[in-house]
Design a protein around this nucleic acid. Structure first.
Lengths: 223, 223
DNA sequence: CTAATAGTGTCTCTGAGACACTATTTG
DNA sequence: CAAATAGTGTCTCAGAGACACTATTAG
C-alpha cells in the first residue's frame, strides 16, 4: 500500500528538485592553496553532477571527480547545501557542496588549478566561489586539529616539510621552534632521517594513532 | 531551448529523490538539554517535512516547525545531509538535518521534549537520533565561541544565570570566578542589577556587539 | 548579627614564545 | 674549516585556576 502524507498526497506527487553535488578539490601547489576547476560553458566551474538513484552524495561526488577530472577515490566531506531556488537557471537544482584534498602530484597532468584568491575563482559559475571559500575554511579547521590529516605529504615527512605546508595553508610564517613543539606530540618518529636540504639530516615522522594536536596549536596557526 | 547534459538527457529526465528537512529543536529544561519530538506512527520523530517548490531548506524547516510543533520563527542552521538511499522505506528520500534552539518558555504548552540522552531519543524514527547528536555537538561548539548565542536567556541576564546555563549545556560544573573572567569580555553591563537569589544583587549584562569569547573559554567548558 | 550571593585581589604554576646555543651533516 | 639545517636548553612573561577576601543585600 502506498504511503500518503497528512494531505493525502503520495510521495511521488510532490514536485522534487534535482539534487546536484559539487566538489571543491583543494591542493597545495606553487606555495598556494589551489582549487581544481573544470570548463563549464564559456567559463569555469567546480566539478559536479546530479545525484543518481541508489547513490549517496559521496558516490555522486566521486563519480563527478572521475568523469570530469579524472580523479580517483579521495576522502570527501559535506560542506553545506546551496538551496536558493533560483541559483541555477536550468531549473530547480539544489547542490550539496563538498570538499576534498589531493596532493598536487596526484592530479591528472591536464588539470586546471587556480589559487583560491584568484579572480577566476571569484568568477566561477553558480555559487561555486562560495564553495571554495567554505572548503578552504574547512581545510584550515581540520589542519588546526590534526597534522596534515588529508595526507598532502606522504606517510612520513620531516617537520620542516610539515611547517612549510602549514605556512601555505594558513598564509603566515610559523616559528620553527614553537611549531615543532606544538606538532610533535601528534607525531611519532620513524627512526629514519632525510637530508633534502644541505645540512644536518632531519628526523622523519608519521602521524600517530591518536594524532590530535594540542588546542594551543590552533592559536599558533591562526592568531 | 531545453538544457541537455553530456549524455543528451534533459534535467527533467533524471529520477530525483524527495528532499526532506528535519529539525532537531533543542531547549534547556529541568537542568538538561532536551530535544523536541513529535508523534510519528507508533513512535516519535523529529519534526520534518518535504521541500516544496520555490522554498529554501530553511523555509521548509520553518514550515515544519509551524505545522508539526506550533513553533514560530527561530534561527535554523544546516547540520548535514542524510543520504543513505535506504534510510526511508517509503522511497528515495534524502533529508537535510537542521538544528535550532528555543527557550523552554517559548515552546507550545503541549510540546514533548526529551533529554538528549533519553532512551526514547535513541529510538527515534529514521536516523533522527544521529541528528540530535549533531545538533548537540553544534550547540556546544557555538556556545563555546559566544555567550548564549541562541538567546536561551533573555536579552539581559546575570553571570550566575549564564553559568548555570553553561553548566547544563556542557554537563559539568564550572568555577564561578574563572567563568566570570572568561565570559565577561563578551558582555557589556546594562548598569541594572537583579536580585533573584537572596544575597547581593547581581549586575546584569547584555551580549556586546563583537561578543566573541576568548579561545581559552572553550578549554574551560570542555576540558 | 548571620546567611547568602556578588565580585575581586592575589598567589602560584604552567606553558607559550623568543633567543641562543649545541648537533650533525656537506663541501 | 665554513655553511647550512636540525634540534634543544632556558628565560621571561602572560595568563589560568584556586583561594580567600571584601561587598552588598535580606531577614
Amino acid at each position: 500500500m502506498e504511503w500518503k502524507d497528512a494531505n493525502g498526497r503520495a510521495l511521488t506527487d510532490y514536485p522534487r528538485p534535482s539534487v546536484a553535488v559539487d566538489v571543491a578539490v583543494l591542493t597545495v601547489h606553487n606555495d598556494a592553496v589551489q582549487a581544481l576547476t573544470v570548463r563549464h560553458g564559456d567559463g569555469m566551474a567546480l566539478p559536479g553532477t546530479f545525484l543518481h538513484p541508489g547513490e549517496t552524495l559521496a558516490d555522486a561526488a566521486h563519480r563527478a571527480l572521475g568523469d570530469k577530472a579524472g580523479i580517483g577515490r579521495v576522502r570527501i566531506h559535506q560542506l553545506r547545501m546551496f538551496d536558493d531556488p533560483d541559483r541555477d537557471d536550468r531549473g530547480w537544482v539544489v547542490s550539496m557542496a563538498h570538499g576534498a584534498t589531493i596532493p598536487a602530484a596526484e592530479l591528472p597532468p591536464n588539470a586546471t588549478v587556480l589559487p583560491c584568491d584568484d579572480p577566476v575563482v571569484a568568477d566561477l559559475a553558480f555559487d561555486h566561489r562560495h564553495m571554495v571559500g567554505l572548503a578552504l575554511a574547512d581545510l584550515r579547521e581540520r589542519y588546526a586539529r590534526r597534522p596534515d590529516p588529508d595526507h598532502l605529504l606522504g606517510d612520513s615527512f620531516t617537520i620542516l616539510e610539515l611547517r612549510r605546508l602549514y605556512e601555505i595553508v594558513f598564509s603566515r610564517p610559523l616559528p620553527k621552534d614553537s611549531f615543532r613543539r606544538h606538532v610533535i606530540e601528534g607525531l611519532v618518529s620513524t627512526g629514519e632521517t632525510s637530508s633534502i636540504g644541505g645540512g644536518r639530516p632531519a628526523e622523519t615522522f608519521r602521524r600517530c594513532d591518536l594524532n590530535e594536536l594540542p588546542r594551543s596549536a590552533a592559536a599558533l596557526f591562526t592568531e
